[in-house]
Write a protein that binds this DNA or RNA. Structure first.
Length: 248
DNA sequence: TAGGCCATCTGGTCCT
DNA sequence: AGGACCAGATGGCCTA
């Protein structure tokens, strides 16, 4: 498990970090003074470069008259140190942006999961200890909306099957619903237009309608099976769902 | 132990 | 430029 975000952020700037190395897996990232030293970076970004490395070799030379060769070497060393410093800063900047992006992505996924939870909460009752997976939730919701729309359509048409509204939606299910989906646009927007087209839905009964989820390849329904079988939904779970006992 | 599900990280792409 | 979105990779947890 990665370290908490705060840890990562606090470790971001090696210049201000004096803590021991982070346990987080930030490969290649400067996590402590040792890394800074390895890159010949100062322990403090605002302070001077590490003196030891710069000073030690030159002390023996201070007594000498520096030749052109020495000056050239010194220039090269300075350029090298500057390059390393700028690369490290760039790395640190990239790292900082990545950490922020990770944070946003995490929040985004949390929001997505919250929306999925909200969706689960308005779906027909399940045993409390059962939680639909994400894919099950989406598939179930898709089919459930279709079933609701179809129920409304039958009710509005006053067909013999219109009693399905009551059979589909026993009282305990109704309060948890945010409201009936618009039979036309909402249903269409949920799936491929052909599969959920309102005109197609109006053309046939729910059970024989080839455009219904029941007729899709994921949807199994047969004469011997009085239940809607929703893709991804465990059958035993389905049978405990009061909203889907319509064709008993 | 294999497989499913999930959270998280990551780099790429698109949009504002 | 920065944020949103996306898909792939990875590792942890759980269950059959």
């Amino acid at each position: 498990m990665p370290a908490p975000l705060e840890t990562c952020i606090s470790d971001l700037d090696c210049a201000s970090s004096s803590s021991s190395s982070s346990s987080s897996d930030l490969s290649g990232f400067l996590t402590d003074e040792e890394d800074c030293a390895r890159l010949q970076l100062p322990a403090s970004a605002s302070g001077p470069p590490a003196r030891v490395r710069r000073g030690a070799p030159s002390t023996s030379r201070t007594s000498e008259v520096p030749g052109a060769q020495d000056e050239e070497q010194e220039r090269r060393r300075r350029r090298g140190r500057a390059r390393v410093r700028s690369e490290a800063l760039l790395h640190s900047l990239r790292r900082s942006r990545r950490v922020k992006a990770n944070d946003r992505e995490r929040n985004r996924m949390h929001n997505l999961n919250a929306a999925l939870d909200a969706l689960r909460s308005v779906l027909p009752s399940f045993p409390d200890d059962t939680k639909l997976t994400k894919i099950e939730t989406l598939r179930f919701a898709y089919n459930y909306i279709w079933a609701l729309a179809e129920t409304l359509r039958l009710a509005d048409q006053g067909l013999p099957g219109s009693g399905a509204r009551e059979r589909l939606l026993p009282p305990q299910c109704v309060p948890c619903l945010p409201g009936p989906p618009s039979p036309a646009s909402d249903v269409e927007s949920w799936g491929s237009g052909a599969a959920a087209s309102p005109s197609a839905a109006a053309a046939a009964s729910p059970l024989s309608d080839p455009s219904s989820p029941a007729a899709s390849e994921d949807f199994t329904y047969g004469p011997g099976d009085p239940f809607f079988s929703f893709p991804g939904l465990p059958k035993d779970l389905l049978h405990t769902t009061p909203c889907f006992i319509p064709y008993h």
